[in-house]
Structures are given as structure tokens and as C-alpha cells.
């Protein structure tokens, strides 16, 4: 059995509105250390709610009604995420699990420079760092994601969509987390920029060895980049398997429907029928 990074058991989230919406229903999931897990599904299927839920990022009316989340830290310690108090939770987030948010292109503060927003991360999570050390760390991050140090004084609107996305990735990378959750990180970008960003994520992963949960509705993209893929529908994971088996021998009808929603780029004209 592979080394486990995150164990999610029987996890449920309900939006307590009238009538209540069961957004995530009894999800059980074992995330392997070092893998890329693709989480696919359509709007409203609960994929973002699940990702937020495991980090306790949900706000009312969302209520976690059942389940446990255990983070197997690289130190060997098992962290029960649901047992952390507010201060422990604050320290845990971003340090162990970071996130590249959906619509990241608009997730940056428009009236603060890139550099100061990246420095914030260190100011909050690494209070012992001096100002000079923080500056240095920010410069290093901007170089790592190939945005360049000279951009630390730029405001978000002065950067292209692809560059802003790189800044978001730099921010997620800042504390060298063990898990990075990416929620539709390339959806608003065109294919060429998307490919550049994917290659960058790949390099960073080789360099820093973090695990990735990649959330998107773009199944062809997931099939290329993921080790395993979880297909979500109406709050449930209907199928979870290696990318190759999802592609060659999907078992669930909904997985088959999703596959047949994408016309083929090459090969015979038409859609994939399984």
C-alpha cells in the first residue's frame, strides 16, 4: 500500500438552506503522497465544497455534518484536522495545505503590489523572519515561478492573466506545503498559456515534491496530467481510478457521459464512446 498523505472518511457537507442541499455526501478518499489526483465534475457537483471542507474553509450556511479528515504529516505525526482549535487551524492552513483558488486571476488584491501580498504570507506564518529575509524570500518565489523579481512592485492589473496565475502559484508555494489544491487553475487561460502553467506546475512538483489535487471540469486535461481521477456527481464520488483505466474502461455511466462530451482532437471524427 502506498504512503498516504490525507485520509478523508465519510465526509458530508450540507448547505443549511431551505430545502437543505447535500453538497458532499459521505465521501471517503485516500490521497497518496506525491500523486496528482484529478477531481472532475460539473458545476454544482460539490468538488469545490469538498476541497474547502477538508481545510475547514466553509462558511455558513455550509455545515460539515459528518466525517473526519486526517493529515499524515511528513514528520510522522497524524493531524486530525477536525480536532484543531482556531489557532492551530490557522497555523495548519497554507503551511501544510495551500490552495490556488478558482478565478485566481481576480483573487489578488488590486490595490496592493504583488510583492507586499507575497510578503503577507511570511509576515503571518513566519513571524520570526526579518523584513530583509521576507523580501529575499519573495524575490526567490518570483524567480521560481519565472515572473521575475522586478515585478514585485507591480500591481495585479499590470500583469497578464498567465502572470497573475503564476503569482498565485508562488503564493501557494511560499511555505513549501505538502499538498497544493488547485481549483480550476487554468480555466480562464488560453491553451498556450495553460500548457506553460502546467509545465511549470510539473517542474515545481519535481523540485519540491508536493502532492496535487487538481480540480477541473476539463476531463481531457485531467486524463493527461493525473495519476488518478475521481469523478464527482451530485456530491458523491461515483468513480475513482487511475487515469488510464478511466480512459480505457470507465465503469460508471456518468463517467462515460463525461467522456463522450468531448469531441476528439485527433483520431476519428466524433466523440469518445465507451
Amino acid at each position: 500500500m502506498r504512503d498516504s498523505l490525507l485520509t478523508v472518511r465519510d465526509f458530508s457537507v450540507v448547505y443549511d438552506v431551505d430545502p437543505p442541499v447535500e453538497a458532499v455526501k459521505n465521501v471517503t478518499l485516500e490521497l497518496h503522497r506525491g500523486e496528482i489526483l484529478g477531481l472532475a465534475g460539473e458545476s454544482g457537483c460539490g468538488k469545490t465544497t469538498l476541497a474547502y471542507g477538508v481545510q475547514r474553509l466553509l462558511k455558513a450556511p455550509a455545515v460539515i455534518t459528518s466525517g473526519s479528515v486526517v493529515f499524515h504529516d511528513s514528520s510522522g505525526e497524524d493531524i486530525e484536522v477536525d480536532r484543531l482549535d482556531a489557532e492551530q487551524m490557522r497555523q495548519f492552513r497554507w503551511d501544510k495545505i495551500s490552495m490556488v483558488f478558482q478565478g485566481a486571476m481576480n483573487a489578488l488584491n488590486p490595490v496592493a503590489t504583488i510583492g507586499s501580498q507575497l510578503e503577507d504570507v511570511f509576515e503571518v506564518h513566519r513571524p520570526t523572519m526579518s523584513r530583509a529575509e521576507r523580501r529575499e524570500a519573495v524575490v526567490e518565489l518570483l524567480e521560481i515561478v519565472k515572473v521575475g523579481r522586478q515585478r514585485r512592485r507591480s500591481f495585479p492589473h499590470e500583469l497578464s492573466g498567465g502572470m497573475r496565475q503564476r503569482v498565485m502559484i508562488a503564493m501557494a508555494l511560499a511555505l513549501r506545503p505538502q499538498l497544493m489544491i488547485m481549483d480550476e487553475p487554468t480555466t480562464a487561460l488560453d491553451v498556450l498559456v495553460q500548457r506553460e502553467i502546467l509545465q511549470q506546475i510539473s517542474q515545481l512538483r519535481h523540485e519540491f515534491g508536493f502532492t496535487v489535487v487538481f480540480i477541473t471540469h476539463d476531463l481531457p486535461l485531467l486524463l493527461e496530467i493525473s495519476d488518478r481521477i475521481a469523478i464527482m456527481r451530485e456530491g458523491e464520488i461515483v468513480e475513482l481510478d487511475t487515469a488510464e483505466r478511466i480512459w480505457t474502461s470507465p465503469r460508471d455511466d456518468y463517467t462515460k457521459t463525461l467522456l463522450s462530451s468531448f469531441p476528439r482532437l485527433t483520431g476519428e471524427r466524433g466523440v469518445v464512446v465507451r
Binding site: 481531457p220 486524463l223 482532437l265 469518445v272
Partner: peptide, 9 residues
Amino acid sequence: ASPDPEKHF
């Protein structure tokens, strides 16, 4: 640059 599972697999 376009995803192409066919070619990939």
C-alpha cells in the same frame, strides 16, 4: 498545447 488523451495514452 491542446489536451489530447488519445495521443497521450
